[in-house]
Design a protein around this nucleic acid. Structure first.
Length: 788
DNA sequence: TGAGCGTCAATTAGC
DNA sequence: TTGACGCTCA
């Protein structure tokens, strides 16, 4: 064993040590960004096992992402070896799935239940609405699902919702839609993600004996990212951990960015009151960033109220100054970020150490264009993609049917895949019959002769689909059958392989490739598969290889989607949480972009804005060595041009933290209250419309000049064409040619408010090309130039 | 069945 | 502006 408890004091700082070794009684670890919390959790577990003699299977550690769980398990394995495998270290959802598979029968859930993803849920909801005669145009099925998800996050049943006053159509219909949706899932032997938690609660509430079993078992419960827990999760923890003795939660209220999906920071903030005698340990020493970056981050986050006071510090004093890029528009911004990234790569920075963040996915397009154009190796970091491909989901649906033929979402998905002459009409009749008889789709197909309206041909086709599913199910149920075998068989018997081959197009062959990859994944899963033995519950039945494989697909992302070669990462701020990079670029630092417009004005209250601020804090604290912030003076959004003022978060960062950005020579740094000055000349709305016409976007003049002073953000004086904080749409319009003035000659010196003095190199109507020393050639509208 | 077209909406996203 | 979706027509 690699772990020796007596060495802990030399491995951890005093606070970490206290957190890792505290015993007896609830513990809240407030772990600032980069303060080594995973380290603390793993050492804590190791210490429990080795120093306190706790059997590993008595330990439950829950996280939010598989990645976090994987990392934790890996680190624990290094400390404890094989014993680490006996601890339950997984996500809330995986834990729920595991417990429900074992105990779900008690609440009427078959152990072979399938887990519906968003697409399955949507399809199911559409069917429910259709059956209820609700027009999907009037009531958006996605919104219904969102509301149901929200209800599940709060552990609310359809009956709970029915008690509430409904003010709109959706709310009025919601309880019944919710009830029928659950009924449909039940018929299908399916659960959705929310159910993995909510039905788990239901199980514990209705069966105290089962709850007691797990309470007795898990002497220690550790929770990572506690600020992200929602009501249901909190309730589960309360039930499992009782008075909280043995409960250790780790989190950071400053990194709470998931309120919108049900997370409730109060779980963390009120932990000391909820669990009497709770010990609170603050980890404020940071091992990731430079002090300068931490200062910038603190400047932003400290403006939030209702936070647990803490301030990160590091021994890495100083650090590279922040850089501010002020770009003309979003394309310019993307190009300049790409340019700087290229410079870094040339200077030897590893691509994997560079990341570019943005608030919304829509911003990624221009960035990707610029990176592609600049031939910079990059990847957009998003969720899974392989398992989201249609053909892969199709084959997976056959596999799920093999295990659980009742799964209607899967049956309806593949009943006519590949095309086998079962059209919409037939499917509709099958569905109606299934609903009428209260049986599953596949069961109904088996009774094809009884289904009203089906002609002999349709009956035959429908029945053979049922036979197909039956064969796969029989194979899956055969003792010793493997996931790979079933997958292979499904590919053949379903006719998918033949269909792709017959088609023969590049696209079809591509898809064939993908489904074969899934078969390959199943086979390699078999190779690594050993039925689990739960040291804490030897009687628990181990799932079959196929079941485990499918669960992996449902709950895990693309484990196999490996990054090929070193690449620069592009991602949303939300996706950046938990990661770290040497060099971080944070783009779109503009009001209405970040903070997002939805958090401003009538849309958002104080809490929304506070969450944006935390998001900014998360973004800043990802940077290890250097942080580059960028904004665009103008930006095309939803087809029209907007001029957004600089983000208020920029204004929160003390100016001394910024260096000089060579590319925007006149803008030295940034002070209190960044404020916008619209060029020297007064710029009015009409003028703003000048010359933004050329669609290539590269020869426009900068109209808006960001300059800085110490005054607390005065209202933009040169009459902003917009209220200072709002975005203003301005239509693109060409300037009236008659207005263009001349008077400039090639070779003569001119002065520009932002670029300084330069030499005229070319004249094209009202656009003058000027070479500015240190800046390069700019195409500038003449009225912004002065003869010198 | 799938290409083509009009409509409509438009954070963030883990499991 | 993009994209997702549903509907229509060949």
């Amino acid at each position: 064993m690699a772990f020796d408890p007596s060495q802990l004091p030399s491995l951890l700082n005093p606070e970490q040590l206290r957190a890792a070794t505290h015993s007896d009684g609830p513990l809240l670890v407030l772990a600032g960004a980069g303060s080594g919390k995973t380290r603390v959790i793993t050492y804590r577990i190791a210490n429990l096992v080795v120093a306190h003699g706790i059997e590993p299977w008595r330990i439950l550690a829950v996280t939010f992402t598989n990645k976090a769980a994987g990392e934790m398990r890996e680190r624990l394995e290094r400390l404890l070896g094989y014993q680490a495998g006996e601890a339950w270290i997984s996500t809330f959802h995986s834990t729920g799935a595991r417990i429900l598979r074992r105990e779900g029968e008690a609440i009427g859930l078959p152990s072979s239940f399938v887990i519906y993803d968003e697409a399955d849920q949507l399809a199911e909801m559409k069917r429910v609405m259709k059956a209820m005669g609700v027009d999907p145009k009037l009531v958006d099925p996605r919104k219904v699902l969102a509301r149901i998800d929200d209800a599940k996050n709060h552990a609310r049943t359809p009956a709970d919702l029915a008690k509430r006053q409904a003010f709109d159509e959706l709310s009025r219909l919601l309880p019944e839609l919710y009830r029928r949706y659950q009924e449909a899932l039940s018929v299908a032997g399916a659960v959705d993600f929310g159910d993995l938690l909510m039905r788990w609660v239901e199980l514990f509430e209705e069966h105290p004996d089962i709850l007691r079993k797990y309470q007795n078992r898990f002497r220690h419960v550790l929770v990572d990212e506690f600020q992200d827990t929602n009501r249901v999760q909190y309730r589960l923890l309360q039930m499992l951990a009782g008075d909280g003795r043995g409960l250790c939660v780790v989190g950071d209220d400053d990194q709470a960015i998931y309120r919108w999906r049900g997370a409730d920071v109060t779980n963390l903030l009120s932990f000391p009151e909820d669990f009497e005698g709770a010990e609170v340990v603050k980890l404020e020493r940071n091992y990731r960033s430079t002090q300068l970056i931490l200062d910038a981050a603190h400047a932003v986050i400290s403006k939030n109220r209702d936070r647990m006071e803490k301030r990160l510090w590091t021994e890495e004093q100083g650090g590279a100054p922040l850089v501010l890029i002020v770009a003309r528009d979003e394309r310019d911004e993307a190009m300049r970020v790409a340019d700087q990234v290229r410079d870094l790569l040339r200077a030897g920075t590893e691509p994997a150490e560079i990341a570019v963040f943005y608030r919304t996915n829509a911003q990624s397009r221009v960035l990707e264009d610029a990176f592609r154009l600049g031939r910079i190796p990059h990847q957009i970091v998003r969720g899974r993609s392989f398992y989201d491909r249609a053909e892969v989901k199709d084959l997976a649906a056959y596999l799920r049917l093999a295990l659980n033929p009742r799964s209607n979402a899967d049956a309806l998905r593949v009943i006519n895949k590949p095309a086998r002459g079962i059209g919409d009409t037939t499917v509709g009749r099958v569905e109606a019959a299934a609903a009428e008889w209260g049986v599953s789709i596949v069961d109904a197909c088996r009774q094809a002769a009884q289904i009203p309206g089906l002609n002999a041909g349709a009956q035959g086709r429908v029945r053979s689909f049922a036979t197909l599913v039956g064969k796969l199910a029989a194979l899956a149920a055969t003792e010793g059958s493997t996931a790979g075998e079933v997958a292979e068989e499904a590919l053949q018997l379903s006719g998918m392989e033949a269909a792709f081959q017959t088609d023969g197009s590049d696209e079809a062959l591509d898809r064939l490739e993908n489904v074969r990859e899934l078969v390959g994944a199943a086979k390699s899963w078999d190779e690594g598969w050993t039925p689990e033995v739960d040291a804490g519950d030897p009687d628990a039945e181990a799932p079959m290889a196929l079941a485990a494989f499918l669960e992996q697909i449902s709950l895990l992302g693309d484990a196999d989607e490996k990054v090929q070669g070193p690449k620069v990462s592009l991602m949303t701020l939300h996706a950046s949480k938990g990661l770290e990079f040497e060099q971080v670029f944070l783009t779109g630092m503009e009001e209405t972009v970040f903070p997002h417009s939805r958090s401003l004005g009538e849309h958002g209250g104080e809490e929304e804005l506070a969450e944006e601020r935390r998001l900014c804090y998360v973004g800043f604290t990802r940077a290890k060595r250097r942080l580059v912030l960028s904004l665009a003076s103008s930006r095309v959004l939803f087809g029209d041009l907007r001029f957004n003022p600089p983000s208020r978060f920029l204004g929160d960062v003390p100016r001394e933290l910024f260096g000089i950005d060579a590319a925007t020579a006149r803008i030295p740094s940034r002070p209190q209250g960044i404020h916008v000055v619209y060029d020297e000349e007064e710029l009015d709305r009409e003028q703003a419309e000048i010359d933004l016409g050329d669609d290539d976007g590269f020869e426009e003049e900068v109209f808006v000049d960001y300059s800085f002073d110490q005054r607390p953000a005065p209202a933009p004086r040169a009459r902003p064409p917009t209220p200072p904080r709002g975005a203003m749409p301005i239509r693109r319009e060409r300037q009236d040619p008659a207005r263009s003035a001349g008077g400039f000659t090639i070779g003569s010196p001119v002065r520009h408010s932002a670029f300084g003095v330069g030499m005229v190199e070319g004249i094209d109507g009202d656009k003058i090309s000027v070479r500015f020393p240190g800046v390069g050639v700019k195409r500038v509208v003449d009225r912004f130039l002065q003869r010198v």
